[in-house]
Every structure is written in structure tokens, then in C-alpha cells.
Nucleic acid binder design. Structure first.
Ligand SMILES: [Mn+2]
Ligand SMILES: [Mn+2]
Ligand SMILES: [Mn+2]
Ligand SMILES: [Mn+2]
Lengths: 163, 163
DNA sequence: AATAATTGTTAGCCAAGGCTAAACTGTTTG
DNA sequence: CAAACAGTTTAGCCTTGGCTAACAATTATT
């Protein structure tokens, strides 16, 4: 079933420069790449919400829907709907018209996310990326960085902190 | 309108360690972070499709829907629908039941995406990340890396290539 | 050439994550 | 204390990106 690997006659050409690229990875590996990204996308937004809620509580004493909407650049209706979802997922508790609290599990996720986010951000800065750009890039990259890479980033930060 | 910055009475606590984190960025900047990520997510999948189609043509001589579905780990129906969209966007041309071709614009996008993907991949490897992990991380990270960061990554690669 | 297998398309379903408009609640203030 | 205002929720709409099942076209086998 379509492990179709016989290169066609017109597969040649393209010897112009050394630009043959990296050759396609084996199908199974390739599929796992895309799958991993799809999985990350399912949890991304949730992580950002939970992380933001944690940050608001930490820095401002409470997390209100309006502040979340404001920070995320999204309508309050969108936030309200999302909060219901976070509730169903057991990540936050909320009474109607009151501010939010993270559950145990929510706090755990918030901390993990924040730690990861910080490592990516500090890594980019250590690399020499401008702070504003680093913040923007980190916001997206954080969800696609494996533990292995994270460890290496941390090491890099440490090595560039001394002097 | 909710530039609400008066810290509440209970905002104190949390002097346990030096763990106060990085202080929230100004609202405008924070909003731009999330917006940038949302925008990236709109084009991500399209870029991956176009890039893959380009790679298939380059390495195998043609891009068939079945191969795309196979590589992406997704149903043929999903691919078929996506191809219609790519068509409407003017990125590919296709006759029913035949293999795909990239338009001028599609080729341009494919090349940009591939270049970016390669830089991120090579950067991760240069950093010391295991090849398999690097491939997985790169597949997601590539869509969230600014030109500025990309340039710095390229410099890093070059510096670590010589010896 | 007829049949079988593979490949591609279509229809219809679903969840996520946006939006606006309208209703409702809570708080501030005249 | 009654309005007015600010914050929250709900209802209903839309697009994206998955899926399965049924059907259609092409290609391969006998
Ligand atoms: Mn984050
Ligand atoms: Mn993020
Ligand atoms: Mn890619
Ligand atoms: Mn990708």
C-alpha cells in the first residue's frame, strides 16, 4: 500500500547546484513529525490560557476574564467560552461573574508552561535575539520544543550566563 | 477601559524565593505576541502542504494525493479538501485524478518554507539535538521563527560548521 | 477485455476557536 | 437608592481541519 518508492523517469534534472536538499525522511518518521505538531496544536491554546491565568494571579492578585481578553487580544465572548472549556477539563474553578482560580492540576500545568516558556525566552536572548522579537518567537516556539531540546537550551543559557 | 493596573491588596505574598518571574509585559506587546502566533497558525498547514508537495516533486518526480495523505498521516479525504483550498489560493494547479503542480507562487512559498525549515533543522543539530528529535521540533518551530532569529541561527550554523 | 486494486472525490458529520449582538449581573456614583 | 457603567454570559454565526462512508476514475492483473 503506497510505500511507493520507485523513482519516476523524470525524477532526474535538478543537478544545477548541490541543491538536492536533505532527501525525504522515511514515511513513518515523517508522519510522526506532523502528528506531533497536530498534537501540540491541540494543547497550545489551553496552555497559554492557563499560563496567563497563573501569571495574572501571581502578578496582579487575581485573574479576571476582561484582563485575559485584553491581553490575548480576543473578545470577551471568546474568553468566556474558553473558560467553560478549561472548567470542563478540570484546570480552573470559577463562579459566575467572579474571578478565576487554578485547580491543583491547573497550577501544575501553569508552572510547567511558564518554566518552559522562560527557558525558550532566555535561550533566545542568550543567542542574541532582540528582547521584543524573542518574546514573540518564544510565544509560538515554546509549544514545539521537546524536553531534550529544552535541556540543551538550558545548558546553553547557563554557559552564557557566566560572563 | 481596563488598563486596570492597580494591584489588589492580596497581590503580595510570593516572596518565598526569588521566583517572581519576569513581570508581565505591557498589554500592547503581550497582545502582539498572541496575535503573531494566531497569524502563524493560519498559514502553517498551508506552508507544510506546499513544502511537502515541492519536496515530493523534487525527490520523486511527482506529488500524488495518496503520498501526501500517507506522509501527513491524514485521510485522503482531508488531502482532497485541502488541495481544493490550495487551488483556490492559487498555490497549486491540478486536474482531477492527476498529480499536482505548484504555481509560480506555490514554488516561491515552497522554497521559502524549505529554506526556513532547513535552517531550523540544521541549527538544532548544530546545537547538539539528536537528529530525530531535531526533525520533530523543527516541523513545529519553523512556523514561529522570525527572520531576525533565523539570521542568528544561520550565523550559529556557520560558526559551528568550520571544525 | 473483464475484473480487481488503488487512487481520488464528494457528502455529511464533528470540535475548536474566532466573531457580533443581546441579555444579564455587579459595582460605582450622582 | 436608582442609574449608569463595566464586566460576564449566552446565542448564533463562520472557517478550519479532522473524520467516515459511499461513489467514481484510473491503473494493474489475469
Ligand atoms: Mn507561554
Ligand atoms: Mn504560547
Ligand atoms: Mn515544514
Ligand atoms: Mn511544519
Amino acid at each position: 500500500m503506497s510505500d511507493n518508492d520507485q523513482s519516476l523517469p523524470n525524477a532526474a534534472a535538478s543537478m544545477s547546484n548541490s541543491n538536492c536538499g536533505d532527501a525525504l525522511p522515511p514515511v513513518g518518521q515523517h508522519t510522526r513529525q506532523y502528528e506531533t505538531v497536530r498534537n501540540a496544536h491541540e494543547t497550545e491554546l489551553i496552555e497559554d490560557y492557563v499560563e496567563l491565568i497563573g501569571d495574572l494571579i501571581r502578578h496582579r492578585g487575581e485573574a479576571r476574564a476582561a484582563d485575559i481578553a485584553n491581553r490575548m487580544g480576543v473578545s470577551q465572548a471568546t474568553v468566556s467560552k474558553m473558560i467553560r472549556r478549561l472548567n470542563e477539563l478540570g484546570l480552573v474553578t470559577s463562579k459566575p461573574y467572579r474571578s478565576l482560580f487554578l485547580t491543583e492540576e491547573g497550577q501544575k500545568m501553569a508552572e510547567i508552561s511558564r518554566t518552559r516558556h522562560d527557558i525558550v525566552l532566555h535561550f533566545l536572548r542568550a543567542l542574541g535575539v532582540n528582547d521584543n522579537t524573542a518574546r514573540i518567537d518564544a510565544e509560538g516556539m515554546e509549544h514545539h520544543v521537546s524536553d531534550e531540546t529544552l535541556t540543551i537550551m538550558q545548558r546553553f543559557i547557563d554557559q552564557h550566563a557566566k560572563r
